[in-house]
């Protein structure tokens, strides 16, 4: 899987002002049968993007030519439900690098980070204003700066700091994953096993 190194991203957005978007909507179960990580982007939001006959639904944001860019903006509790990492792979494979919401489900948030997609938690005020900005002008751009942990609505100038632990931040900036850390700690693991009481 590609490991883009994160720095600063300036991009237009695709708005999904819907709350509780579950991972069954992001990628329905019937598309999880592949044994590789690639190609899930074509079925991202499958049943919202296409009707039962496979025709594009023109009113869905991903099919609306006014919207574009590599930032997905969604309502609160994004990614609830199933633990399927395929949801994060589909988001990455489609071309998104950042998801902005007020709130992410725990497992999905970890899956995004492990798939080199940056989940950015913003305040309700920031999110509401961003949806308004996009509504007024779909060309509005947002700047996401990982080194300084800031997200900025470039139309209104509203800027916020977002949280990410310094370990994961370093992983994203340098394109490293957790297995590299774990492999370097094999000795600690064996030592732990020797003393394990439970």
């Amino acid at each position: 899987m590609a490991r883009p190194k994160f720095g600063t991203i300036i991009s237009r957005c695709v708005p999904l002002p819907i709350e509780n978007i579950d991972t069954d909507q992001i990628i329905p179960a019937r598309f999880l049968k592949s044994t590789t990580r690639e190609g899930f982007g074509q079925n991202l939001f499958r049943d919202w993007r296409y009707d039962a006959d496979g025709n594009l639904r023109p009113d869905f944001a991903l099919n609306d030519p006014r919207y574009g860019g590599c930032i997905l903006v969604a309502g609160k509790n994004f990614g609830c439900g199933s633990s399927r990492e395929h949801a994060a792979w589909a988001i990455a494979d489609y071309g998104f690098r950042v998801v902005i919401s007020t709130f992410f489900a725990d497992i999905h948030r970890n899956n995004e980070l492990n798939s080199f997609v940056l989940p950015v938690v913003v305040s309700e005020v920031f999110l509401a204003e961003l949806f308004d900005s996009i509504d007024a002008d779909p060309a509005v751009e947002v700047r996401v700066d990982l080194p300084s942990q800031t997200v900025t609505n470039l139309t209104t100038g509203r800027s916020e700091k977002f949280e990410i632990n310094s370990y994961k931040k370093q992983c994203l900036m340098e394109g490293l994953d957790d297995i590299e850390y774990l492999m370097a700690h094999r000795e600690d693991i064996e030592q732990y096993e020797n003393g394990n009481k439970l």
């Binding site: 497992i107 970890n110 899956n111 492990n114 957790d178 297995i179 774990l182 693991i189």
Partner: peptide, 19 residues
Amino acid sequence: FGIGTSEVEMVLASQCILQ
């Protein structure tokens, strides 16, 4: 608790996950 596939790989590789 439930985990994603990257974490499944961590467990297979090291019997640990970062959490």
